[in-house]
């Protein structure tokens, strides 16, 4: 299809693709080069490549920032939160798409409204609720907060289930299969691409979230990657190479995993987002 286009259009297209690709790759190249340089080299020539690349800087940043601990915390919190979101919201999305009841539309709008509330505004009241429950400074404070991030997931699951014909469930009912079995054995397997998509999107959001861990997780041993990375930036004022190395240490592992699974994610989105 591309080959059928006029040459000038093709050149233009490649130009556009290259500009965007470069704008994304250049900052990374700069980060890597900066991390590998000495502080003196950085202030003298921002462009140059490091004279003797210091690869030890990544290990240093990893150890000084205690990134093992940070990654364990982040992965634990994110895994539980994402599992909860997918479980709760796939169920709710299925109910909103396949069942008829009064106030269905109102309930759907109620679930969507949360998307439009700036999260900063609920910061203080939420903190009070968590403090009342005695959960501040525990993993559960953030996990429960993430459980409440339902709007996008419900929106997405509802659209996905709406694309699955209701006749399927009806046929199962005629055969006397229980509602739970219809949901767990028929509907959920059909929705697995949507579940994968929601899981990935939420994984990224929660893994990168900064505000809630900042407020709730005071104890240093509970810190997440983003939180620890920010603390690292603050406590290594003039050590530009180490600061940039910490940025890379905090971003590279999720990025690599994400890129490896890119195809699955994309197909998940194709099948998911547009089913309706």
């Amino acid at each position: 299809m591309f080959k059928s286009l006029p040459l000038i259009v093709r050149i233009g297209a490649y130009l556009l693709l290259s500009i965007l690709a470069l704008s994304i790759l250049l900052p990374f190249a700069w980060m890597i080069a900066t991390a590998l340089k000495t502080t003196a080299e950085i202030s003298q020539s921002p462009f140059s490549l490091p004279a003797t690349p210091n690869f030890g800087v990544f290990a240093e940043a990893w150890l000084q920032g205690d990134f093992t601990r940070l990654y364990l915390n982040s992965l634990g919190i994110t895994a539980i939160a994402v599992t909860g979101i997918v479980a709760c919201c796939s169920a709710a999305g299925y109910a909103l798409a396949h069942f008829e009841f009064r106030a269905k539309e109102a309930l759907f709008l109620y679930f969507l409204a949360g998307m439009m509330i700036p999260p900063q505004v609920i910061l203080v009241p939420s903190f009070k609720i968590m403090a009342t429950l005695g959960l501040v400074n525990s993993y559960w404070s953030v996990i429960l907060t993430y459980f409440a991030w339902v709007p996008f997931a419900i929106f997405f699951f509802r659209a996905y289930f709406a694309g699955i014909p209701r006749e399927l469930a009806e046929a199962a009912r005629v055969e006397g299969i229980s509602e739970w079995d219809i949901y767990l054995r028929v509907m959920l397997p059909l929705a697995s691409p949507a579940m994968a998509t929601v899981a990935i999107v939420y994984f990224i959001w929660i893994f990168n979230d900064f505000m809630w861990p900042l407020v709730y997780l005071n104890d240093q041993s509970l810190r997440t990657v983003t939180l620890g990375m920010m603390a690292f930036q603050g406590s290594h004022a003039a050590l530009m190479n180490l600061k940039v190395a910490a940025l890379l240490v905090a971003t590279a592992p999720p990025l690599i995993i994400f890129l490896i699974f890119r195809r699955q994610i994309q197909s998940g989105l194709v099948e998911g987002a547009l089913k309706a």
Binding site: V124, K128, A131, N137, L214, V215, Y216, L217, N218, Q220
Partner: peptide
């Protein structure tokens, strides 16, 4: 009990208010 610097004010205010 020690709190992370930025969260401390919120924690303390909440405690006082409660």
């Amino acid at each position: 009990t020690s709190f992370e610097n930025t969260a401390y004010e919120t924690a303390l205010r909440t405690a006082f208010a409660g």
